[in-house]
Write a protein that binds this DNA or RNA. Sequence first.
DNA 1: TCTGGGGTCCTAGGACCC
DNA 2: TCTGGGGTCCTAGGACCC
Length: 451
Amino acid sequence: MFGLLDCNNFYVSCERVFQPRYEGRPVVVLSNNDGNLISRSAEAKALGLKMGDPYFQVKDVLHRHDVAVFSSNYVLYGDMSRRVMYHLGQVAPAVEIYSIDEAFLDLAGMETYLGRLDAYAQKVRAGVKSRTGIPTCVGVAPTKTLAKLANRIAKKNADLDGVLYLDSAERRAWALRQVPVGDVWGVGRQYAAKLNAAGIDSAADLARVSDAWARKHLGGVVGARLVQELQGRPCAGLHASEDGTLSRQSISCSRSFGRPLSAFADMLAAVAAFLSRAAEKLRAQGDMAHVLTVYVSKNRFATNVLPPFSRSATLTLPAGPTADTTVLLGYARVLLNRIWEPGVAYHKAGVVLDGLEPPGTGQQLDLFAPATAPLVLPEKPTLVTRRPGLMASLDALNERFGRGTVRVATAVAAPSRPATAGSANRPPWEGKAQWRSPAFTTRLEDLMIVN
DNA sequence: TCTGGGGTCCTAGGACCC
DNA sequence: TCTGGGGTCCTAGGACCC
């Protein structure tokens, strides 16, 4: 059995924990750059506001109904998530952190001891609520896909009191009939349209298609697994997250800019800033990266811009994996030069680190590195292993004095235009965040004072 | 004027290997 | 005239997830 615990309207719930005056009122949280709606309270959903709605398109509705609007505060949400996951680690045999607000619980064999698992699921919910203030729902079922499905039904039906346990074939069949096929985990917009066209409308319909049909029309083996999981045959196990943290297979950092950039120097500074952040995450996870991708994007909504909207370049690092920001930056500059088109107004850029591995596992030595020429002092070492101390010091300083206290010079924006009021010293790639709440749990200055 | 960010998994062709 | 089989790695891109 798998459990799937999912936080309700997670970002909105995080804001409400520290500002309970927003309980019962419509609340939304915006994406970076205050671009789109990415979290809505039940009251906001009732107003017809949709996930992903651009803010500027629904601004009037928000004002008319006095909806509370927040910029996203990932420092706060990340810390609240950590607390939720920590508690789950205390009460479940194994936990897989699936996203910032969701976790799978390994409940294999627990029925032998506890009988039905409804009461246990309720206890987990109550524990998370009392320790973090975050409301949740739990689905319990024999496969991950069915646990997701059960969770979704529990969320939509208040009378279930936040828990749905699919313990019998009859209950599973009933649950499959409740859910439109487009809401099944793994069925996105494209597949939903295809399925509807083929007369497959509910999860129950999808559970009946043949293996061959699923392979042909739903992305090969992925589709076949999806159907099997709906039928109650597990195809995916639980990937336990060690000590409550998540270790990733790729790490990226990207941003939409506050205003379009068309100067190479600005773009290079932006890429350097994103790369610095990604490399920081890489080192925090204790890994090195073997593959680097840099990409730049144009405004895909502009009527005068034709696809492709994005260009990327990838490089397998010739001298092997590294976690050194400055080494990575040297390659990033080469990649950016490869995709850069002069005169284009860019709206976004990003970097991706792939091929992550812990240090010391089959690193390739550089044939041309100075170490092979003992009479020449290494002026410019190329492998991170030669100077782990520099990166460690960099990380320690930024940890202690705040992110970005010490940076590589390339990532510091040169003032390419006179500063306007309010924009003084803000790099041109930084977006808007007009309504950000305080970092209640991670900054001493932001701690609440209780009188 | 204003449209997010960070992930996973899979496919496929080309270059290359034995 | 006739030209194999079984792999890996690299790179780019698509579909999906929250």
